[in-house]
Amino acid sequence: MKLQWDHIIHYIHDLSSFQFPEDLLQLHEGGRHEALGTYNDLSYTDLSYIEFIDVFDQNILKQAAASEEQRLSFAATLERTDYTEGWKRLCFRTDNIEALNDHFISCGLSTIGPSKMSRTKSDGTVVSWQLLYIDDDRQDRELPFFIQWGDDDVKRTEQLESMFQSVNITDIALMTQNKDQFIQNWIDWFNADYKDGQLLIPDGPTFTLFEGDQESIESITLSGIEHPSMEIRGATYHFHA
């Protein structure tokens, strides 16, 4: 059972008219999550990406967020955070979501899923995946969620590599009110390593922790772009060449 970095979600109101400033990142039309009332654009680095998300029908989303299956979903996060723009969730991918679910249960956690999801692309093709959520009401933050794609990494690379950019997400800064507990949870639950103030997950960015007065994603850092830091629709982006 592998656990790897997959993507981060940035909520943007009126996404259909959004363009990344100075075209520093390329955005590609994703599709619609019909059962959740959301749609997205994607900016790929490799198989990992930034998901820019918006809502096409708040009534659909509200109904989904009230359901048992979707109450912890990435879409429900938008409802819980009052549709404020900015960073929302982290996602990790696995090659065996059933084994990952068993692992979480062995850690004493409750889960929701795995649940099957899909979205329809503009060309009519359907992308499918399964999602898994940790159900832990002791947490004040939006916990990472977990995905297993319908296709393996080799096939997905063949399908998506034309959209890969010479850019990498090298670090994600996280603020927490209880740093020690946060670190221990990631070590126990996600088999993360911790070194020099950073949590490490294979084949992904470092996760730099800061103790503060809230639970939040503070910023991301991208390599391959030389540009001053930017605040974009509630989200902080740092860059380095």
Results as ranks from 00 to 15, higher is better:
Trp5Thr: 05
Trp5Asp: 07
Ile8Lys: 07
Ile9Asn: 10
His10Pro: 06
His13Ser: 15
Leu15Lys: 07
Ser17Tyr: 06
Phe18Met: 10
Phe20Ala: 09
Glu22Lys: 15
Asp23Arg: 10
His28Cys: 08
His28Met: 01
Glu34Asn: 06
Thr38Asp: 07
Asp41Glu: 11
Ser43Lys: 03
Asp46Cys: 04
Ser48Trp: 03
Phe52His: 08
Phe52Gln: 05
Phe52Pro: 05
Gln58Ile: 13
Gln58Pro: 03
Ile60Asn: 02
Leu61Thr: 07
Gln63Asn: 14
Ser67Gly: 12
Ser67Ala: 08
Ala75Lys: 00
Ala75Ile: 00
Ala76Arg: 03
Leu78Trp: 08
Arg80Glu: 11
Arg80Asp: 12
Thr84Leu: 07
Trp87Thr: 00
Arg89Pro: 02
Arg89Tyr: 08
Cys91Ile: 11
Thr94Gly: 02
Thr94Cys: 01
Asp95Met: 05
His103Ile: 04
Ser106Trp: 01
Ser106Val: 02
Leu109Asp: 05
Leu109Val: 00
Lys116Thr: 13
Met117Pro: 00
Thr120Pro: 00
Thr120Arg: 15
Ser122Ile: 09
Ser122Arg: 06
Thr125Arg: 12
Thr125Pro: 01
Thr125Asn: 14
Val127His: 04
Trp129Met: 11
Leu132His: 07
Ile134Phe: 05
Ile134His: 08
Ile134Glu: 14
Asp135Ile: 00
Asp135Thr: 00
Asp136Asn: 15
Asp137Ala: 11
Asp137Glu: 15
Gln139Lys: 14
Gln139Ser: 11
Gln139Trp: 05
Leu143Asn: 05
Phe145Met: 05
Phe145Val: 02
Phe146Arg: 10
Gln148Asn: 08
Trp149Gly: 02
Gly150Asp: 14
Gly150Asn: 10
Asp153Gln: 09
Lys155Pro: 00
Gln159Tyr: 05
Phe164Pro: 12
Gln165Ser: 03
Val167Gln: 06
Ile169Lys: 00
Ile169Val: 12
Ile169Trp: 03
Thr170Asn: 13
Leu174Gly: 08
Met175Ile: 07
Thr176Leu: 08
Lys179Glu: 15
Gln181Ser: 14
Gln181Thr: 12
Gln181Gly: 15
Gln181Cys: 07
Ile183Met: 07
Gln184Gly: 02
Asp188Arg: 13
Asp193Leu: 06
Lys195His: 13
Asp196Gln: 13
Asp196Arg: 09
Gly197Ile: 12
Leu199Pro: 05
Pro202Glu: 12
Asp203Leu: 14
Pro205Gln: 11
Pro205Ile: 10
Thr208Val: 01
Glu211Arg: 04
Glu211Asn: 01
Glu211His: 05
Gly212Asp: 03
Ser216His: 09
Ile217Trp: 00
Ser219Arg: 11
Thr221Phe: 05
Gly224Ile: 08
Ile225Val: 12
His227Lys: 03
Pro228His: 12
Ile232Ala: 03
Thr236Phe: 03
His238Gly: 00
Phe239Ile: 06
Phe239Trp: 09
Ala241Gly: 14
Ala241Pro: 10
